[in-house]
Structure formats: C-alpha cells, structure tokens
C-alpha cells in the first residue's frame, strides 16, 4: 500500500482540485519553487496563469483573491508563516467573510487559506510560532485543523470546493506524519464532522491537530487504568457538537488539549458548550498554551509553553478521579 505524507497529501489535494476545476488557482509567496512543498510541481503542471508567485504583499494578495473569487475564481492562498494571519485578519475576517451577508447573498467568496506549518516549528521564536485558529472560529470563518494525512487530503479538498472562505491550519507538528493509504479511497471529508480515533468509556479527550497523536499516546499509556476516547474535531468551525455530545454520553468526562492560548481559546468554547448542553459527571479540564503566550526562542522555553503529554495525562487522571 502506498505511503502518503501529510505534506504530500496537501499537495495532492491541490493538484487534484486544479485538475478537476479550472477556476482553482494558487497565490502565495514562493509557491513556484514551493518552499513549503505544498505547492510543489503545480507551476509546471498548471502554468503561471494559475499558480501566481506574489510579491511580499500579504494584505493585497489576500484581498486580490477575494476579488478574483467574486468574479468566479476559486483561489487558494498559501501563507508561509501563521503570524501572517494577523496581517490579513482584516482581509479575511472583515472583508472575505462578510461579503455574503452584507451583499444580501449577491456573491460568494470561495477562498481557501492554507497554513502549512502552523504552531511551533521548534525554536522559530516569537513571530513564527503562533496557532491562531481560535481567532477565526471566533469570527465565524470556517476553520480546519487536520491531524492526519488522509484528513489533510479530504479536508483540503472540501475547503477548496466550499463556497465560503476556509482557513486550513496544517500544524507543523503533524507535517512529518506518514500514513499507508489506498489512493483510490482518498475522499472529501465534510466540514463539521469529527472523528473518533480511539474509542473509550471513561474520559473523552478532544485533541486538536497534531495533539491527536499525543492524545493517542496518553490513551495508550493509561490503558488498563482509564479508558480514554480520543475525539478529533477536525474542523473547529463549524464544530461537530453532535459527535462530541455522543462521545460524552458514553464517558461523561471531558479534557480538551488545544495548542492555542488559554483565554478565549477553542478549548474554552468546547468546555463551555459541553457544560451548557452535554452530559458531564465531573468538572472538565483544559490543557493549553498559557494565557497570552509568546513562544520564546530557546527550545526549553518554546516547549514550556506548549501542551505536553504529562499535562494531558495529569488532566485525564484528575477528571477520571484516579490522579
């Protein structure tokens, strides 16, 4: 069975969609030589009319994509650095996202924003290590964080086909992952559908992106003591609340592990919604970055700000009453 890397899955998804739909085009910095690999080979296959290397003008090319989308194209915009989303927050949250409503449904803005390498890349320091997915969920922009190569393919395909703006975070921590896959079985994954990676009966761990792997490792460590269900939401907005509710019906206990800052992070929303609407038999817990975290450069300091397996294990034991 062929072996597919997460990055190759992203690359394959873009190539397949460009093949399928002539309206799909790619814009970004250095997408021609594909410094991030996700766009590798696309310039050669589809030419400079559909694969546009941009000047370093993130704000302009992000809104350029909005205009192109309103005139019928289906652009994918790649950003090399997650913090660039802070530069283009106005262009995504305040422009692209708002056009459908503000025009009374006269237009749509089908743009995909791809972040290959979000979160910490291991000592890339303060301005290259953010994970701002909660911001986009907060403003209501569709937000996707695939954890596996198969889901990276399926969710990116769906994002490109979606008629609204979608931000796709591909966490740096997940990029090295590889998976044996049947290429014929690769398929779109609907937005708002979570995935249970491991079934359990005591505690539901909601893990976002690359942290799914850590959650699975912790579940394995605790096997025999605590039966952990690992729930991967896959998309943070829209969120699979029904799937989470079903999981909590089984377990009644919740831990969220989320690589974003604590206050108003997606973990807070998950815990709040579970508390309001779902079955909980013990107080839920979050494992997140600290409040207001700016990731320091030195490796020890960078790691000190990210959720760890030890923290997750302690949280699971606490809610399970075995800690």
């Amino acid at each position: 069975m062929p072996n597919l890397s997460y990055l190759k899955a992203l690359n394959r998804a873009i190539g397949d969609e460009m093949e399928r739909d002539p309206a799909v085009c790619v814009l970004g910095e250095d997408v021609g030589v594909a410094v991030g690999y996700a766009t590798a080979g696309l310039l050669r296959r589809f030419g400079p009319d559909r694969v546009l290397d941009t000047p370093i003008s993130e704000q302009a090319f992000t809104s350029f994509a909005t205009g192109a989308a309103m005139a019928g194209m289906r652009p994918l915009v790649e950003f090399q650095i997650p913090a660039l989303l802070f530069l283009v927050f106005e262009q995504i949250a305040n422009q692209a996202h708002k056009f459908a409503l503000m025009t009374g449904g006269q237009t749509r803005v089908p743009v995909t924003y791809l972040l290959p390498g979000s979160g910490s890349r291991d000592s890339w320091a303060g301005q290259h290590s953010d994970h701002p997915y909660s911001l986009f969920a907060h403003v209501g922009v569709k937000t996707v964080v695939p954890a596996t190569a198969t889901d990276a393919y399926g969710l990116l395909v769906t994002a490109i086909r979606d008629d609204d703006p979608v931000v796709v975070f591909a966490p740096a921590g997940a990029l090295p992952l590889r998976e044996d896959v049947d290429f014929g079985a690769l398929a779109p994954v609907p937005l708002g559908s979570g995935r249970v990676h491991r079934a359990g009966t005591d505690v539901t761990v909601v893990a976002v992106g690359h942290l799914v792997r850590d959650a699975l490792a912790v579940a394995e460590e605790l096997a025999g003591t605590v039966s952990v269900e690992v729930f991967d939401p896959r998309t943070l907005y829209p969120f699979d609340w029904r799937g989470l509710a079903a999981s909590l019906e089984r377990t009644g206990r919740l831990v969220v592990v989320d690589d974003s800052n604590r206050t108003c992070g997606i973990g807070a929303e998950i815990v709040a919604t579970a508390a309001e609407e779902m079955r909980l038999t013990a107080p839920p817990r979050r494992v997140t970055r600290p409040d207001g975290a700016v990731l320091p450069f030195a490796r020890e300091l960078d790691l000190a700000c990210q959720p760890t397996r030890a923290q997750l294990r302690a949280a699971v034991e606490k809610v399970a009453g075995v800690g």
Binding site: A23, T66, A69, R74
Partner: peptide, 21 residues
Amino acid sequence: PIAAGAAWAMRRSAAYGPGTY
C-alpha cells in the same frame, strides 16, 4: 485590491462558474 483581483479574473474564461457575477 478586491477590484484588482476581479479585474484579473475577468480576463479568464474559467471565471464564469454558476452563481458568480
């Protein structure tokens, strides 16, 4: 920049999908 993007797209025959301008 929105107008610039629309201008670019309008030159292209592909830019006439269903439901678009």
